[in-house]
Amino acid sequence: MSARLVSSLNLRPSTRTKLQKAGFQTVKDLQETTPIELSKEIGISNNEALNILQQIKKNKVTSISASEALQQERKLCPISTSCEAMDQMLGGRGVPVGKITEFCGAPGMGKTQLGMQLCVNVQIPQNLSGPEGEAIFIDTEGSFIAQRAAEIARATINKLNENSVTECDPPMNFDIVMSKIYVSKVHNCDELIALIKVLDEFLQEHPRVKLLVIDSIAFHFRQQFDDMALRTRLLNGLAQDLNKFAQSYELAVVLFNQMTTKFIISGKYNLKDQAALVPALGESWGHQCTNRIVLYWRNEIRCAQLVKSPSLQETTVHYQINSTGVRDYQADSLNSKRRWEELYDI
């Protein structure tokens, strides 16, 4: 360590002598003290003591005030899901940037398609109040199909271009949109961990990346793990890295999780065993994400329920998935069914 002399610090002569009198020879001696101790010992004000210590401590504790945090959060543009109800549920404008959002759902709920929709929507330009970023899609299940992503992109672009008829050049170009979604297919959990370890380099090369999708986090972690403690440790490490990326690169991290069946073995007095459908990867994983949304079917309608959020109310909304991507639920199809049932007197 450095053995810089106290006399070489940028201080008032009187303070310097006071320090020397108290026996502080090198910077090393000063490192052991706190501002208050120092001010009491040699009789200087707290501010002066702080000034001395700040000169020798290279990394001071950084923090931001709540008002600064508010400013920053307002500046970050959330990513719309194209379903207004779901955007409302997530705080008004969509998936928040700088946080981890987890979507859990049974098979066939449209998780992958939601991911594709977000990858397209993150590229909406700023003049249309979008984040104008790029997207990373990490595919662990092999279910990312480029043709479907293209279909969603085309539909979204057409919709946007319709709305802005007055502008002469279209706001989004199909080829550019497609070239700004980076897909990586990982085949086992080692590759996934390795990918996360080197991801910061990729993020530095591509500073416009605003969205990181992992579809799904659960698949590789649900097999070949005899040692559950190891799994928890690895997952926690992964979550820490993701959290770090989310904050330092201003990313929206969207994770998709599978559902698993949990058995509640009845005690002596209960009559029946019970089972429930819960998000996979266990309890401790549930703490890692800021927002958690569960997707499920109810009466043939797709529902999304916000189950965990630090700031928002628990709500349930309807959504649908059609050829153009994720959209608001419209009651038309249900009505036609009812009409038909009335007609045939069922």
């Binding site: 979604i181 897909v183 990586s184 590759e191 961990i193 390795a194 080197v198």
Partner: peptide, 19 residues
């Protein structure tokens, strides 16, 4: 760990290239 990670990590492909 970083070097080993770089060694096995799958590459990123843009959707345009995939198509």
């Amino acid at each position: 760990q970083k070097r080993a990670a770089k060694w096995i990590v799958p590459e990123f492909v843009s959707v345009l290239d995939m198509m």
